[in-house]
């Protein structure tokens, strides 16, 4: 059973990752990335890491990918033209392609080094044994304890980094005028103004004698003796 789930999730993860690169439409690329991340969460579940699996889905498939979806959905057309630019044979695109393959190669080499260095030793073994219980390895309680004791500094530094990034994003957006003070004056038009043109017998007209003069503009359309259609000032 676990083998079946493993292969479904593994195939999902790999095809999702391939899809991110191969698919033309950026929106589908993002969706493929979501599928990849959810498949990874399933793999974590198989390893009895429920907390990591849930966080994977909540943080990556949920929060991070939502931002991607936002950006792609709003500026989808323009990012398609980015793909066109990459496929063209201009000098800039060639340089870009070279840089991209260099970066990708470096990443691949790094992955291979880490994999050959540590991962292969674990392949033949069964890994750490699973002990069900409330405070054993992999449970939220255990992870929380580690985060607040052994990895306290790394944890705090990471959270501080995120805080700095969030504040920085707000500051940058402000500097570019993205979050400027709202100076737009809202013009409000009451439904009354639309429904009842002046001269149709409102109380204000009766009292103040407004709008009962015959039409001064010729060709107003609605016949002689029509009251002046001047709108009272919008409050």
């Amino acid at each position: 059973m676990s083998a079946v789930i493993f292969f479904i999730a593994a195939i999902g993860a790999i095809s999702g990752a391939v899809g991110v690169v191969v698919l033309r439409d950026p929106f589908y690329s993002v969706l493929a990335l979501v599928a990849h991340l959810v498949s990874l969460a399933a793999l974590f579940l198989l390893l009895r890491a429920e907390f990591v699996a849930a966080v994977q889905v909540v943080v990556y498939a949920g929060a991070v990918m939502v931002l991607y979806v936002f950006v792609v959905a709003y500026v989808g057309e323009e990012s398609a033209s980015l793909g066109e630019r990459m496929r063209s044979t201009a000098l800039g695109s060639r340089r870009m392609r070279l840089l991209a393959s260099l970066a990708g190669g470096a990443l691949l080499a790094e992955l291979l080094i880490s994999l050959l260095g540590t991962g292969l030793k674990a392949i033949d073994s069964y890994g750490a044994a699973y002990h069900p219980g409330p405070r054993t390895f992999g449970t939220p309680a255990y992870i929380g304890e580690l985060l607040l004791t052994r990895f306290l500094i790394a944890f705090e530094v990471a959270s501080f980094l995120l805080l700095v990034a969030a504040v920085g994003a707000v500051v940058l957006a402000r500097r570019r005028g993205g979050l400027g003070e709202e100076t737009v004056t809202v013009e409000r038009l009451a439904p009354l103004h639309l429904e009842r043109p002046l001269g149709t017998g409102t109380m204000a007209e009766g009292v103040e004698g407004r709008g009962v003069a015959p039409s001064a503009r010729p060709g107003d359309g609605n016949g002689a003796g029509e009251p002046v259609r001047e709108r009272e000032p919008v409050r």
Binding site: V57, G62, A63
Partner: peptide, 9 residues
């Protein structure tokens, strides 16, 4: 967290 994971999906 299970709830929020499915909420995210």
């Amino acid at each position: 967290l299970y709830l929020f994971a499915f909420g995210a999906i």
